[in-house]
Simulated scan of single mutants.
Amino acid sequence: MAQPHNQGVPDSSHPTEQGEGFGPWLGRQLRRAGMAQADLADQAGVPRATVSAWITGRAEPRAETNATIAAILATASPK
């Protein structure tokens, strides 16, 4: 029987698959990649306060920004 592609890789799974919100997932992904909030903010072209708001759940990124975040995290080296 085929296994789901994300089985055994919980750190990279989508937040809703783990029952958590976007903010905790994003924070975990940044830690995994060894990135600071400021790093993501610079690369995504948003203020650092915006990244902080995403992580704390006070805001969520727009759809087009989600694509940018995904691309940044995909190229980050896991630490």
Rank of each mutant, 00 (worst) to 15 (best):
residue 64 E to D: 12
residue 8 G to S: 01
residue 72 I to R: 05
residue 11 D to H: 12
residue 14 H to T: 02
residue 46 V to G: 04
residue 60 E to W: 10
residue 42 D to C: 06
residue 63 A to T: 12
residue 31 R to T: 08
residue 48 R to Q: 12
residue 46 V to A: 06
residue 53 A to S: 12
residue 6 N to C: 09
residue 36 A to Y: 11
residue 7 Q to C: 10
residue 39 D to F: 07
residue 17 E to C: 08
residue 40 L to H: 00
residue 35 M to V: 08
residue 8 G to Y: 06
residue 50 T to K: 09
residue 49 A to R: 12
residue 14 H to C: 07
residue 59 A to P: 07
residue 29 Q to G: 00
residue 22 F to L: 15
residue 12 S to W: 07
residue 52 S to M: 06
residue 79 K to Q: 14
residue 44 A to G: 00
residue 50 T to H: 01
residue 75 T to R: 15
residue 26 L to N: 05
residue 12 S to D: 08
residue 41 A to K: 02
residue 4 P to D: 03
residue 50 T to P: 04
residue 12 S to Y: 08
residue 50 T to I: 02
residue 32 R to Q: 06
residue 60 E to Q: 14
residue 39 D to N: 09
residue 23 G to H: 00
residue 7 Q to L: 15
residue 63 A to Q: 13
residue 58 R to I: 00
residue 11 D to K: 13
residue 67 A to K: 09
residue 21 G to P: 07
residue 47 P to W: 01
residue 20 E to H: 09
residue 15 P to D: 08
residue 2 A to T: 10
residue 36 A to Q: 15
residue 2 A to N: 14
residue 2 A to M: 13
residue 55 I to G: 05
residue 44 A to W: 08
residue 67 A to H: 12
residue 9 V to G: 03
residue 48 R to T: 06
residue 29 Q to K: 13
residue 60 E to Y: 11
residue 33 A to R: 08
residue 39 D to G: 08
residue 77 S to Q: 13
residue 70 A to K: 13
residue 26 L to H: 00
